[in-house]
């Protein structure tokens, strides 16, 4: 089947999509957007997190056909048009929140949405918002640091 939707502001189309394909597969293998990651494909790790009509979801659990006509934002859509990193991306780099980096795209999408919703999250809020994103390398401490840093920088910038 053919599926057409908007990704990071640009219309995208995929043909010959098998009906069982996930949004994740279509993004990665058909649209050249492999930033969303394939760590578990069962909604238990968050590495494939994208925003579907603004809402963070596991793209591995969205059937490709369900996205017809809708808007998707992936990690590739977080940076500015000139390629400048978003606040949360820069904070992840600066805080040492990235090791192998496989969980990073999903965490960034989730953290970005958290800060949009709640610009001054408590540690408990950060932990809850990121509790669907597994990281195996960092022990999460530097990830917390990064989100705190991004919140502080956003606050300063206001």
């Amino acid at each position: 089947m053919r599926v057409t939707f908007t990704v990071n502001g640009a219309p995208q189309e995929a043909d010959d999509v098998w009906e069982g394909e996930s949004l994740l597969y279509v993004l990665r293998e058909r649209m050249g957007l492999p930033g969303s990651k394939n760590a578990c494909e069962q909604g238990e790790c968050g590495s494939c997190t994208v925003r579907l009509d603004g809402v963070p979801v596991c793209s591995c659990l969205v059937a490709a056909g369900q996205v017809q006509g809708r808007e998707v934002v992936t990690v590739e859509g977080l940076a500015g048009e000139g390629g400048e990193l978003s606040t949360v991306q820069q904070a992840f780099v600066d805080a040492g929140a990235v090791q192998c980096g496989f969980c990073t795209p999903g965490l960034l999408v989730a953290a970005d949405e958290l800060l949009e919703r709640n610009p001054e999250p408590s540690d408990g809020d950060i932990r809850e918002a990121l509790s669907g994103n597994l990281c195996r390398c960092t022990g999460y401490e530097k990830i917390l640091d990064a989100v705190r840093l991004a919140a502080a920088r956003t606050e300063e910038a206001v």
Partner: peptide, 26 residues
Amino acid sequence: PIAGGTDVMVEINFDHRRPEHLLDLN
């Protein structure tokens, strides 16, 4: 029927289920 997909897609991704029709309710 597939709505949130959080059960159905796991079964499809892990090859536990191959329904003839998926009925999208989104």
